[in-house]
């Protein structure tokens, strides 16, 4: 036991040493977007929200046909109905959000100074439910994904605007998300960046790997392989499993921070969710 504690202590020492250099989200953002723009000079910044379709004409043609009447249309419609349905106390979701929840999805994930934690839109929806006496919903798919799809649709085209305030807790959350994104894990020894930065635009079997730039902009997402709409967290769980790592809990700090970092890296890009992918 003592030994384990010593090992733990020595492990924690490393990140502390790193934290000595202050996280600089704004500089990271510039470097991150610049990296992709330089690597794929033909793809304009805003087009990154279309993910793999910048890299495969065949997939793009199919996608164009599919979004002519997109399969997520039902999720948006159902989500609107749910969003407008009153809780037992007579209030609606609109009461929990600024501007009645319309056109605000681009500001999530949001840092909550009260709890010192990052709050993605899905978590905010669940908080709203709990505050109004309703039970939490699954953060991955189903009703919550539908509500998210509707709320996101009202932000269509608005530039992503995630804020990392000058609060050491917010900066720490951002840094933790960044570290999670670049750290290899799982038996296959892959990081998020292995596929979505280093191998972005290349084929993994039949699929084109979407660049991390723009990746969060089209969530929630209708994936043909899912057969329904799922949230960003659902994708995190899927990616972890793919590299043979146990996924984190859907509302874990790790996933909240990861979403915070990834979405911040997309600041300025237009919201394009819900989206459709294979």
């Amino acid at each position: 036991m003592k030994l384990a504690l010593i090992v733990l202590a020595s492990l924690w020492a490393a990140p502390l040493a790193q934290a000595a250099s202050q996280p600089d989200p704004a500089a990271d953002l510039q470097g991150f977007q610049g990296y992709f723009l330089k690597r794929f000079p033909k793809v304009p910044l805003a087009a990154y929200v279309n993910g793999p379709y910048n890299f495969s004409k065949s997939e793009r043609d199919q996608w164009k046909q599919i979004i002519e009447f997109p399969p997520y249309a039902f999720a948006v419609a159902d989500g609107k109905t749910l969003f407008d349905t009153k809780f037992a106390n007579g209030k609606t979701y609109a009461s929990c959000f600024p501007n009645g929840g319309i056109g605000i999805a681009q500001t999530y994930p949001m840092f909550d100074a009260k709890t010192g934690r990052v709050v993605p839109l899905g978590v905010a929806i669940n908080r709203c439910r709990v505050a109004n006496g309703a039970a939490k919903l699954s953060l991955t798919t189903g009703k919550l994904a539908d509500i998210e799809a509707y709320m996101t649709s009202t932000s269509d085209g608005k530039p992503i605007d995630v804020v990392v305030p000058h609060d050491p807790r917010a900066l720490a959350a951002y840094q933790a998300g960044k570290e999670y994104f670049y750290s290899r894990r799982g038996q296959l020894n892959f990081s998020c960046a292995s596929c979505h930065v280093q191998a972005a635009g290349m084929h993994l079997r039949g699929d084109v790997l979407a660049p991390a730039l723009g990746l969060t902009a089209s969530f929630p997402l209708y994936r043909s392989s899912w057969g329904d709409v799922g949230t960003l967290v659902r994708r995190f769980i899927g990616c972890n499993k793919k590299v043979k790592a146990e996924p984190e809990a859907a509302d874990s700090t790790a996933y909240r921070d990861l979403a915070y970092f990834m979405t911040y890296m997309n600041n300025g890009l237009p919201i394009a969710g819900p989206g459709a992918r294979p």
Partner: peptide, 17 residues
Amino acid sequence: MTEIEGLILSAPSRRTV
């Protein structure tokens, strides 16, 4: 794999829906 040109930045029909 290289990127392709002639991108659609947004899909008007999607917006309509």
